[in-house]
């Protein structure tokens, strides 16, 4: 008989049998706690899910309120058109252009490295490599993606810059070129893996069709696979740019804090992210213009990356070709 009637938990060993009334009582009790949980859990889980939205709202609200306070003291036009950033001293000037150009230049250098190498890596892994080689190479690239950015910063500062100085003797000890290149290397795995995903999802029938018409493997790749996967590939580029714009530690370490408006890549330039690090590290007194400028710069950065991410999502949704 054991096991047949052991539905209730508190059945004593001696009386292995239960009256029907007892069983109903027990079921009622467990059902009522279950039904309370049943009603409660969705609400608890919804509350938890809403916290994730609160994070976004929190980011936008904090940035917005302090940015508004900043623009009460510094005009909108000055912020976006002045080429002078001199946050300290008597005649403080807050032009974001030096930071903006530094960010754009470093991202451009990074993408000049990451796009060709990342795309070629993706092509090799998706079209040329045998299953065995791919299984060997892909995890190694993932290691490259998993290395903390601070390590790349160290690498740029202590290895790449001295190396580049041998080629370009006029290179400053801190400059935008070296972190740009290292940032590109950091982004290679991201571009490679997203592009490879896009290319792998191109159906084999299309490749076979082109091969059947007498194309070489390169022609199949270049004229059939890449165009078919272009939405995913471009999306990976845009996400890479967004990553480069938001990258902080590499440029902070290896590009220094020179706030000049220049296009000379051998010089030290401060990006938006590096400015934020410098100002927060310097303990700007709350309420000062310097303190508010932090939020204005962060807001600019946030808007830039958000727009990039939305563009990437839009591209991969809108231009995806379904097979």
């Amino acid at each position: 008989m054991k096991g047949v009637l052991s539905l209730g938990k508190d059945v004593s060993r001696e009386s292995n049998t239960l009256s029907v009334r007892q069983m109903i009582e027990q079921n009622k009790r467990s059902v009522s706690t279950a039904s309370i949980l049943e009603g409660l859990m969705p609400k608890i889980l919804l509350t938890i899910a809403i916290i994730s939205i609160l994070t976004t709202i929190g980011i936008v609200l904090t940035l917005l309120t302090e940015t508004v306070a900043f623009f009460r003291e510094v005009s909108f036009v000055e912020f976006f058109t002045s080429t002078i950033l001199k946050p300290l001293g008597e005649h403080a000037q807050f032009g974001v252009l030096p930071l903006l150009t530094a960010t754009i230049i470093s991202s451009a250098i990074a993408m000049a490295v990451a796009i060709p190498i990342g795309l070629m890596t993706a092509v090799y892994l998706s079209e040329y490599a045998s299953e065995r080689v791919r299984k060997l190479l892909k995890p190694m690239l993932e290691i490259l993606a998993g290395i903390p950015t601070i390590v790349y910063g160290f690498f740029a500062f202590t290895f790449v810059t001295p190396l580049l100085t041998k080629i370009i003797p006029t290179l400053q000890p801190t400059n935008i070129l070296s972190p740009g290149i290292v940032m590109g290397i950091m982004i290679i795995p991201m571009v490679a893996s997203l592009s490879e995903d896009a290319m792998s999802s191109v159906p084999n029938a299309m490749r076979e069709g082109a091969l059947g018409l007498g194309s070489t493997k390169f022609e199949v790749t270049w004229k059939v696979v890449v165009p078919a996967a272009i939405s995913g590939i471009v999306a990976s580029f845009v996400l890479g740019i967004s990553r480069a714009i938001g990258e902080t530690m590499i440029v902070t370490i290896a590009s220094g804090s020179n706030k000049v408006f220049t296009f000379d890549v051998t010089q030290s330039m401060q990006t938006m992210t590096a400015y934020i690090v410098e100002v927060t590290g310097g303990d700007a007194p709350a309420g000062s213009t310097l303190y508010y400028s932090l939020y204005a710069v962060a807001m600019t950065l946030f808007v830039f990356t958000l727009v990039m991410n939305l563009i990437a999502q839009y591209i991969s949704r809108k231009f995806r070709e379904e097979y």
């Binding site: 899910a49 809403i50 994730s52 939205i53 994070t55 976004t56 929190g58 980011i59 904090t62 940035l63 302090e66 996400l239 967004s242 714009i245 938001g246 990258e247 902080t248 992210t273 934020i276 690090v277 927060t280 709350a286 932090l294 939020y295 962060a298 950065l301 946030f302 990356t305 958000l306 990039m308 991410n309 939305l310 999502q313």
Partner: peptide, 28 residues
Amino acid sequence: AFIQMNISNLAGVPSIVFGILGLTIFVR
């Protein structure tokens, strides 16, 4: 859809912006 969009966009926010959020809300 809103929560989902939020999460995918949150993943793209630079880490330094989270630092500012932490500085403003938790630290100060």
